[in-house]
Design a protein around this nucleic acid. Structure first.
Lengths: 140, 140
DNA sequence: TTGCTAATTAGCAATTGATGCAGATAAGGT
DNA sequence: ACCTTATCTGCATCAATTGCTAATTAGCAA
């Protein structure tokens, strides 16, 4: 996702308006690698701007996703997560704490057993234990 | 997932009862590669046994999943899908018709960029166009 | 600066997928 | 055949998300 300043220009030239709510969300998402949900982002936004609506958060996230500035991912936590990192990467989900990490794979896995399918995209979800959670288990 | 007969034995020896509803679901799921949702399975069941409750379908699916007889997968269609194929495989989702196909990958993709994470499982979701949908697009 | 117009916000209703609950029912061992 | 206990059904509930609308505001133009 681009910087708040670049997004401001991009939104205006797309006929969209740049409101204080959106500027705040731009800032909260920029360089955010926590893969937040709409709800967690709303909590963070509320701390800075009390009264901001969850509906507005959803709306802005949808707009950003449509512009290709962020991608939404599904890792089985029940709610969508948003990732401002739109480079080609995958995700590792810790079964202990639920945290999601970005991962990069050396090469696209070759598939077998499917003759008649043209693949346009592949997304891998790894599950396991993160370092912190492994340490916790070990001491128990 | 094992055959309806084997499941009957397995359920009884686990202290679970084998009802007509469950027997029907065993049959509907056996060798079913359509990756049904709870709802679509309920529709199929209703055709044979009018009045069967959606709640019962969910309950039985949960039981089967807990016994390791089927796995639930998330492919971004909004609802959980159930797969009686519990071998180590992945899925290809057609963006045209939404159908889900089983796929097998030659070797587990190696990951990079994550030092401190022990992977216990990896699941790949491929997206693209199935043969039928590619053909449709070509003729348009 | 002021005004105009269309986009946006907030709040609430509605929707969807899934689960919790309880009384009536039925499986299956004895 | 009986009795205990799991199961079934129907309904209420829940959580995540989207639809809807009146009031507000961004941003262009005069």
């Amino acid at each position: 996702m681009r910087s708040p300043e670049e997004l401001t220009v991009a939104f205006r030239s797309a006929g969209l308006k740049v409101t204080p709510q959106r500027q705040l969300l731009f800032r909260l998402l920029h360089d955010n690698s926590s893969h937040p949900t709409a709800d967690s982002l709303h909590s963070a936004a509320t701390a800075v701007m009390p009264g901001i609506s969850l509906r507005t958060v959803y709306q802005t996230l949808t707009d950003l996703a449509e512009m290709g500035e962020l991608q939404s991912i599904e890792v089985g936590s029940g709610s969508l997560r948003f990732d401002p990192n739109v480079s080609d990467h995958h995700h590792a989900v810790c079964d202990g704490c639920g945290d999601v990490h970005d991962v990069y794979v050396s090469k696209a896995p070759v598939l077998r057993g499917l003759d008649d399918f043209s693949v346009s995209d592949a997304h891998i979800v790894y599950r396991g234990q993160c370092g912190a959670c492994s340490a916790l288990v070990a001491t128990k």
